[in-house]
Amino acid sequence: MIKIKTREEIELMRESALIVSKTLGMLAKEVKPGVSTLQLDKLAEEFIRDHGAIPGFLGLYDFPNTLCMSPNAQVVHGFPTKEPLKEGDIISIDCGALKNEFYGDHAYTFEVGEVDEATKKLLKVTKESLYIGIREFKAGNRVGDVGFAIQEYCENHGYGIVRELVGHGLGKKMHEGPEMPNYGKRGRGKKFKEGMTVAIEPMVNMGTHKIKQLKDGWTILTQDGQPSAHFEHDVAIVDGKPELLSTFKYVYEALGIKSNEEDEFRHEFH
């Protein structure tokens, strides 16, 4: 079910989203060779609780951790483990926080040390496709417009778009309507209206779009073992236009990256 939010509710959602953004920023300094994803998970849980929120994933659908940690060929929903990260790995960190009854849900794929050029390009194109999709999330457009824009951009670069996993509406529940696939046809699907809030999250594979699931019932991998990238933002429709609630600003500050990619989606309202 799609829940339309008031301006006040959108501001509460921004608080939750920004706690996740700051958590990812804190983790950006810690992601390096030799660190285990379980160590990162503990840091994230402490950080979220210290900021007056509850880890959004912990216990949700019986998930046992604060973070979904998905390295290399894992697409999403990987468990944190004691295994240390290695030079050249990539790691998708997906994080949720619950505050004031609203969820934030936000992800970034990090490079571990020096990563090869082909993988760097996969990450770059996937992140670019996220903003290309967000641009289509505006009043009067439809779900298929976002999916089509992401799919076209990524497939033009020769990548596979995961079909079985999708973005989603977000609010007092982690998963509300509408589902937000990263593929589709223009003009199809639910129409976007003022006050809608969603998590848009391209999941893009270097090779085939096909995936498989481990016996743990959670971890999703690419079928061909090639790397997968995942970036996610929380977005609201305000004055008919997409308004970012989450930000990669804290990640970029930690990593020394300069970027103005988010500027067009910040029309701060109060």
Rank of each mutant, 00 (worst) to 15 (best):
G256R: 04
A229F: 08
N65Y: 14
F269K: 15
V204P: 03
A199F: 09
L170P: 05
M206W: 04
K121V: 03
C154I: 05
H51N: 15
K191Y: 10
L58K: 15
S16W: 08
L12Q: 14
K82S: 12
D50K: 14
E152I: 00
K3D: 07
K172R: 14
L221Q: 01
V162E: 10
F148D: 14
K42M: 12
A97W: 03
F231G: 06
Y252W: 15
E253I: 07
V20R: 02
I257K: 00
F192A: 04
N260H: 13
L24E: 09
T247S: 15
L67T: 07
D116N: 13
Y153G: 02
A118Q: 15
L165N: 08
F102I: 10
G25M: 00
L214T: 12
Y250Q: 05
F265R: 03
K241N: 14
H77Y: 13
G25P: 00
F231D: 00
N100V: 01
V112E: 07
K190S: 11
P55I: 02
L255G: 01
Q213Y: 11
K32P: 09
D41V: 05
L38C: 13
L244W: 12
I90G: 07
L98E: 02
T219P: 06
E253Q: 07
D41Y: 05
F231Q: 02
H209V: 09
S92Y: 03
L130C: 01
K258V: 12
Q213N: 08
K29L: 12
N182F: 06
D239C: 03
M174R: 15
L255I: 03
F231Y: 02
A254Y: 08
I91Q: 00
S16P: 09
T119I: 12
E164F: 08
K3Y: 12
D239M: 05
L18S: 10
M203A: 03
V166T: 14
A28T: 04
V115E: 01
E111R: 15
F265S: 01
V115D: 01
N205Q: 11
Y159S: 08
I134Q: 04
E268S: 14
V76F: 12
L245W: 10
N141E: 05
G34T: 11
K127W: 05
G189H: 02
L214D: 13
S129M: 06
F148P: 03
V251S: 00
F148M: 14
F63V: 12
I19T: 12
K42S: 11
F110T: 09
